[in-house]
Amino acid sequence: MPDASGPLLDQSMQTVLSVGIDALAYGMVLFVISIGLSVTMGLMRVVNLAHGAFAMIGGYIASYATQTLGFGYGVAILAAVVGTIIIAIPVERFLYRRIYGAPELTQVLMTIGITFCVIGIANYVFGPTLKTIPLPETLRGPVDLGFRSIAAHKLFAIACGVAVAGALWYLIERTSFGVKLRASVDNAAMAASLGVRTRIVYAVSFAVAVGLAAFGGIVGAELLPIEPYYALRYMVTFLVVVSVGGAGSIPGALLACLLLGAIDTTGRYLLPEYGEFFFYLAVIAIVCVFPRGLLGRRS
């Protein structure tokens, strides 16, 4: 019965495509937020559990800028990224600088402490409610791709992920700053003896990392809503991306995000009653097979 199988096939193709787009958008949002964590953990060797807190700060600032101050979406993104970096500078100077090279447990306790303080302060200042960041008109509707239409904000998230991946690769592999960063990472003492001011290199890297967290927090707000316990709720998810991808590896993080995004989205679609079971099952399997992550740097 060719007439019946045609629409059926068509419908399942539509479903696959729909899940695929959702997975890609979710994966890219994870990537934009987590890649900064991959940089701090892989390159600067700091287990920064407070990374999500900076994404949350970005989200709160953007929400405040749009809802209360009436700024446009683009301005709000810029204000949030800059604002988060400004907040992060003294935090790096006075708190993180103490834990570079410290035992991992010390780093974990310090950054968990920072996370809870950020949650407390954010909720005290802005109130313990879900924060929304209204999308501009252009990102609100669907985009017609000819064969089907897709939510514009998902395409935007995907485009942001691609842009961030490309820009970061160029920054680390090709620029003067990237050469300094890689030198500082490989051998800080040697880099310093060449005259590289490693503290500044670390501070700039940290600023880039939290700036990306803030940017990802806003761009991904439709998929990972900005709420009072955001920093805690997604802490493990961001860590998973880094450990699965391999700390410090941009292609690794990208691969991990696409893979985990696909598993999570498919799982939720096909077997919603299992929650995140398949996501974490996949994490366990990957960590067993690739203890350094899919594309981890040599230690």
Partner: peptide, 18 residues
């Protein structure tokens, strides 16, 4: 005490730039 993941060209470029 060189940087294992960097190339000789990158090493020298870094030193000259510094």
């Amino acid at each position: 005490r060189l940087f294992p993941d960097m190339t000789p060209e990158e090493h020298l470029a870094l030193a000259v730039m510094q």
